[in-house]
Amino acid sequence: MQSPLEHVTLFHIGPVPIAEPVVVTWLIMAGLGAFAFLATRKLSILPSKTQTVLELFVTVLDDQIRDTMRRDPAPFRPLIGTLLLFVLIANWSSLIPGIEPPTAHIETDAALAVWVFVATIVFGISGRGLKGYLETFVEPSWVMMPLNLIEQITRTFSLIIRLFGNVMSGVFVVGIVLSLAGLFVPIPLMALELLTGAVQAYIFAILATVFIGAAAGESEEIPLTAKESD
């Protein structure tokens, strides 16, 4: 059994070592990109089944962002949607024999959390202005500034560790059971991993939404959903 804490370099591109999580991520990116390209080639007003599923996904995602942030979901949709899809597929990639999910490696989780951290700052400044964003660090008073600054770091770390710990532990448990019990015994645990992977993807995406929304602040004009506008 191979530990997810170990780094296996598959090959090098020049001086750059290419580890297994990077290659799996490339595969996931290729699959998602190809699916997105093919699925959205022939969108029409009268949707096909695939288009209906895609529209349902985007609509639900928008509703979730709107309900959480109380803002127009369009600027946040690519980041939140990508985090959700990538983490979900990366978590479920463990079902393929021989594939280790990239999210079981802390570098992948850290890379995703870095973008959440950057988005928090960018959307915070664009939503409140630089002065307004900086003022959020001294709320409710100056005394709280150190804690607010630490919170920015710690909640990013909490994102990394939560996802990494859950996925990595699942991989560990399945690997240990597989090495001890046999071929079909880990199947219930793998099914549990499916649920855990979905839940962790949702938690990662919704926490990113909450952090970015808190930084950006609420919009005065909340766009109505189609349901509300009726």
């Binding site: 780094h7 999580p21 959205t40 570098e107 890379a111 995703l112």
Partner: peptide, 28 residues
Amino acid sequence: WTLGLQTVNAAILIWLLARFLFRPVSKI
């Protein structure tokens, strides 16, 4: 190295899905 590559990969994936998935679907 892996952290850096995954960061770049995440950015590329965000652009890819924004360009080929979320934007067309939201437009339709």
